[in-house]
Amino acid sequence: MGREVIIHIIRFILLVLLQVLVLNQVQFTGILNPYLYLYFLLVLPVDFSPNMGLIVGFFLGLTIDIFSQTLGMHTIATVFAAYCRPYALRYMAPRDGYESSRIPGIKQMGWLWFLTYASIIIVFHHFVLFFMESFKMSGLWFTLGKAIGSGILTLVLAIIAEMLFARKAGKGLGYE
C-alpha cells in the first residue's frame, strides 16, 4: 500500500514537471498542445474510489493551473474528466468484471480497450478545457479542431508513456 502511494506521488510530480517545463513549451504547429498530465488520471487503479478520484483530479488540475497562470481552467476540465472516468470504466467493463487486472493499461486490458477508454476521457477533458479557454461560442469549429488535434497528440503521448513505463500484467501496481 505504502509503495503504491509513493509511486503515484512520484508519477504525479514527474507528469506535472514534464507538462509545465517541456510540453507547454513545445508547440506543434503553433496551436496544438498535448496535455499528458491527464495520463495520471487515466492509469489510476480501477477500484480507486471515485470520490477520491475527483479530489485527485482537482489537485492535479489546480497544480497545472498554478504553473500555467490559468487558475480554474485545467481544474474544471480535470475534475470533469475525473467525473467521467468511473462511467467510462463501467461502460468499458469486460463481461466478467475487472478481476484480471486493477490497472487500466495496454498490457493489462489490450490495445483496443485502452485506445477507446483513453479517447473517451481525453475527448471530454479537452473539449471542456478548450471551451473554458476561448469562453465563447464563436469560432466553435476552430475550438473543436484545436481540441481534437491536441487530443490526438495527448493520446499518442499517453500510448508512448504506456509502452515505456507500464509494467507487465500481473506485476502491476497493487499486486503486492
Binding site: P50, N51, L54, I55, G57, F58, G61, L62, D65, L71, G72, M73, T75, I76, V79, F80, A82, Y83, P86, M132
Partner: peptide, 20 residues
C-alpha cells in the same frame, strides 16, 4: 455524493476562473 462532490469542485473551479 459522487455527483455532489463533482459539482462542488466544479463550483470551486469556476470561482477560481472568474475571480482571477
Amino acid at each position: 455524493q459522487f455527483t455532489l462532490i463533482f459539482l462542488l469542485l466544479e463550483v470551486v473551479g469556476f470561482f477560481l476562473l472568474s475571480s482571477t
